[in-house]
Amino acid sequence: DVEPGKFYKGVVTRIEKYGASINLNEQVRGLLRPRDMISLRLENLNVGDEIIVQAIDVRPEKREIDFKYIP
């Protein structure tokens, strides 16, 4: 289970102007929005990149997770 405040290694699977889709595994994925990137710009991400993200909002009833990137 993903817990708010914990850090996870994820893989960038899609990049859109509203954010990047991050997969932690086949069943768990979430969104990294541009506003939640401290020192990383969306255009510097590539599909397949592995990054460390922090879960900031977990809504299991909607199967949604928001991530934050902290270098």
Results as ranks from 00 to 15, higher is better:
V2M: 06
V2T: 04
E3N: 07
P4S: 10
P4F: 09
G5S: 04
K6Y: 07
F7L: 06
F7T: 04
F7P: 03
Y8N: 00
Y8K: 00
Y8E: 00
K9L: 12
K9C: 15
G10F: 08
V11W: 11
V12D: 00
V12T: 00
V12C: 04
V12M: 00
R14P: 00
R14C: 07
R14A: 14
I15F: 02
I15K: 03
I15S: 01
E16C: 14
K17Y: 13
Y18N: 12
A20M: 05
A20V: 14
A20E: 01
I22P: 01
N23D: 12
L24T: 02
L24V: 11
L24Y: 02
N25A: 08
N25W: 10
E26L: 10
Q27W: 15
Q27S: 14
R29W: 13
R29T: 14
R29V: 15
L32K: 01
R33Y: 05
R33Q: 06
R33W: 04
P34Q: 12
R35P: 05
R35I: 10
R35C: 10
D36R: 03
M37T: 05
I38Q: 11
S39N: 15
L40C: 13
L42C: 08
L42M: 08
L42V: 07
E43G: 08
E43Q: 08
N44S: 13
L45R: 00
I51A: 00
I51N: 00
I52A: 02
I52G: 00
V53C: 06
Q54K: 08
Q54L: 15
Q54V: 11
A55W: 05
I56F: 09
I56Q: 06
I56M: 13
I56R: 05
D57P: 04
D57Q: 14
D57M: 13
D57I: 12
R59V: 05
E61M: 07
E61P: 06
E64M: 10
E64F: 10
E64P: 03
E64C: 09
E64V: 09
E64R: 09
I65V: 10
I65P: 03
D66V: 12
D66Y: 15
F67P: 02
F67Q: 02
Y69H: 04
I70G: 06
I70W: 13
I70A: 11
I70M: 11
P71R: 09
